[in-house]
Design a protein around this nucleic acid. Structure first.
Lengths: 219, 219
DNA sequence: TAGTCTTTTGCCACTCAGTGGCACAACGAA
DNA sequence: TTCGTTGTGCCACTGAGTGGCAAAAGACTA
């Protein structure tokens, strides 16, 4: 389980069994999707292998796509939890948000998490419904973050804050794509480096130039 | 039909009939979705009313969601067509893209288009699968725009260009939401004004401040 | 420890978006 | 007018997703 929960008293058996079921569905789902393809793996097959009913599957996950995107969504959920307690130190909003996101990234302590994120990224690249679900989840995260920020801080207007969040999420998303596409081992630190690089580019983006290409054959 | 195609020779009967079918499915779909709800309207009902088979529906649209989002997607498709011919005049990439988008917006000449866009926006707000589809469509538009830009212009690295496109699309998306939420008549010009306002905010966003709120009861 | 209450699970039937195959209808060209 | 091409409708089907309900499992109390 990749959620970096603080140590807490042992949950009741019922809760522990629910978490075991969730983890089994998630691990098996990611494995089967990666081996056979997302569309080519039915939920009946997944539930047979985990030995739970499909009814239970849908009590655990909202949709098939949620399994595929769960590793990344765990990160965003932690981001929101960190945002609920983080304190800015005079930096800009985008820098503050970026810092909170990196803190959440540090909180992804399960050594298997990067591998799972890579599987998720591949599934999103190859399956439109997975990609769409991921994008929608981030849009909802933006909404939740705005509400959290409004409760806790003095901020500019909603449009400015929403755009700051959109820019942060777009930068991380592109970083994640670049990380997944890069050769070599895929590590959490590597993802952080790509995220930092994307963050660094942001001030340049608004001033980026565009010129007609020199056309071959044009003298 | 909201596509602002240049005047062209009369298409063959087959093509005209296809377009009539598409328009009938679109107009009827939007109407039924708005009246009854997206999920509450089945494709069987829609096809019965238009008197085509469901098989034909799926030859015309890739999904039910595509009907709901078609008005906005028409705009993005025109954006890509404009991008294939537009010439920058020394402005930044984001300004150039914004200009092309406004040109595409001017090309949405059907007087019914704003009303349809409003219906689409409402459907997206109320139906996750519609919103997700719209977001995914825009992500694919970003990809297509990058490829177009690369063919035609000298540009910075892919990350910078992708982020410029992401920022443009996010700004327009938020403008559209604000436009839909605003009281009074919803016009294409109103949407342009909101788009301009969002564009204007962009340079400010990266420097936007965040401070702890003064807490009531704290002396 | 047994009984009772609460929560969870599995089973089942079902809906509906979406798909593929194929025969027939409609259109287009010579 | 004939023939080739393209489009349509019909049909059977799949699989994600849903609701109802009885049985099983866990929690709590005396």
């Amino acid at each position: 389980m990749s959620t970096p929960a603080a140590p807490e008293p042992r949950p009741p058996l019922r809760e522990r069994k629910k978490q075991r079921t969730r983890e089994a569905l998630l691990a098996t789902g990611l494995r089967l999707f990666a081996e056979r393809g997302f569309a080519e793996t039915t939920l009946d097959e997944l539930c047979d292998e985990v030995e739970v009913s499909k009814r239970t599957f849908f009590r655990t996950f909202a949709s098939k796509e949620e399994v595929a995107m769960a590793p990344l969504h765990d990160l965003w959920e932690l981001f929101l939890r960190e945002l609920a307690t983080a304190t800015p130190a005079g930096e800009t909003l985008v820098e503050f948000l970026h810092g909170v996101l990196l803190t959440a990234l540090e909180g992804m302590t399960d050594p298997d998490w990067p591998r799972r994120v890579l599987v998720s990224q591949r599934l999103a690249e190859r399956n439109p419904s997975v990609a769409a679900y991921g994008l929608y989840f981030c849009d909802r995260t933006t909404r939740a973050a705005l509400a959290l920020l409004r409760e806790r801080f003095t901020l500019p207007d909603d449009l400015t804050v929403l755009l700051a969040l959109d820019i942060l999420i777009a930068a991380f998303h592109r970083a994640q794509e670049a990380w997944a596409a890069a050769p070599g081992p895929h590590t959490r630190d590597g993802l952080r480096e790509h995220a930092d690089a994307a963050r660094t580019v942001l001030p340049v983006v608004l001033d980026a130039p565009v010129r007609a290409a020199a056309r071959v054959g044009d003298s």
